[in-house]
């Protein structure tokens, strides 16, 4: 491609940029010789080229590097130095709120435990009361039955008395017969009375014995039997009372030397109080320290 008045500028620019081959350069030089106008044009374009200037970078020393100063450890050794932070296991009681909750829970359990111990005596007392109530009910039944028996016996006494009166009349006539006839109504009295008593208290061996022992063949013996029945207290009531008297003394809460039992642990009252005092003092101190830190 030849230089002409259309493309000369591109050639000139490439010429001043030193991007033309030796032949192309010669061509350009011939072209400008032919017309001085183009020579001026090339001169103007040549003025756009900056003259190389010298600027020194002063801090070269900062850029220098020396291998011996670049001492580095082998990769395997570096790997030995690696440390991985162990994951932090968050404890159950690390949280302040959890601590206070667990403290409250512990106090609650302590109170419940103490309450349970104090309630145990009350429970037994209640049981005794309940047993006594049951016994009283049974006793009331006995008394009712006794009343019935007494009434029956009174009626029989009346009959005996009447019979005796009748017999006394007869006795005047035949004394030998009189003994037999007196014996008769007495036997007649004892026969219906004994089964009645036994049938009423057959569940209680004591009553049975009592009735059996009392030879109710006279009016006096019958009265004794009735009074014995009236004053009878069932054995279950006796046993419950005895048990309560033996095992469960009332706890004197005013006694400073009392011993508190929690499950199988024996805790001295004073020591427990001292322990709780220390714990509360410790908690208070921690709290004040935290407040100071804040």
């Amino acid at each position: 491609m030849k230089i002409n008045n259309q493309n000369y500028e591109t050639y000139f620019l490439s010429y001043i940029d030193n991007e033309l081959s030796a032949d192309e350069k010669k061509e350009v030089e011939l072209f400008i010789k032919e017309d001085s106008k183009y020579a001026t044009e090339l001169a103007i374009l040549s003025n756009t080229v900056l003259e190389p200037i010298s600027i020194e970078y002063e801090d070269k020393a900062l850029l220098y590097r020396y291998e011996e100063l670049e001492a580095s450890l082998p990769k395997t050794f570096k790997q030995n130095l690696y440390r991985r932070e162990a994951p932090i296991v968050k404890g159950f009681f690390t949280n302040t709120r959890m601590r206070s909750i667990s403290a409250v829970a512990a106090i609650f359990l302590l109170l419940v435990g103490y309450k349970f111990i104090s309630n145990k005596t009350e429970l037994i007392n209640n049981t005794i009361v309940a047993t006594n109530q049951g016994a009283r009910e049974s006793l009331a039944k006995v008394q009712v039955s006794n009343t019935f028996a007494t009434n029956t016996l009174n009626a029989k006494k009346l009959n005996i008395f009447t019979n005796s009166n009748n017999l006394s009349g007869r006795l005047v006539n035949t004394s030998s017969k009189a003994e037999v006839t007196i014996a008769m109504p007495t036997n007649a009295l004892s026969e219906p009375t004994l089964p009645l008593a036994t049938s009423l208290y057959q569940q209680d061996q004591h009553i049975k014995d009592l009735v059996a022992l009392s030879d109710i063949n006279t009016i006096e013996n019958a009265d004794k039997a009735v009074s014995a029945l009236a004053s009878y207290e069932p054995s279950s009531v006796k046993e419950a009372k005895a048990e309560a008297a033996e095992d469960f003394d009332n706890i004197n809460t005013d006694n400073p030397d009392r011993v508190v039992y929690i499950a199988n642990l024996e805790i001295d009252g004073d020591k427990l109080r001292g322990f709780t005092r220390r714990v509360s003092a410790l908690l208070k101190r921690n709290k004040t320290e935290k407040e100071k830190e804040k």
Binding site: I53, I55, E70
Partner: peptide, 23 residues
């Protein structure tokens, strides 16, 4: 490239790079 080569590069090219940038 050794450190000597590198330092030679510093001597040879740092001025030019700096001139190019600062201009």
């Amino acid at each position: 490239m050794t450190d000597q080569d590198f330092n030679n590069c510093v001597d040879n090219y740092s001025d030019g790079v700096y001139r190019f940038i600062v201009k």
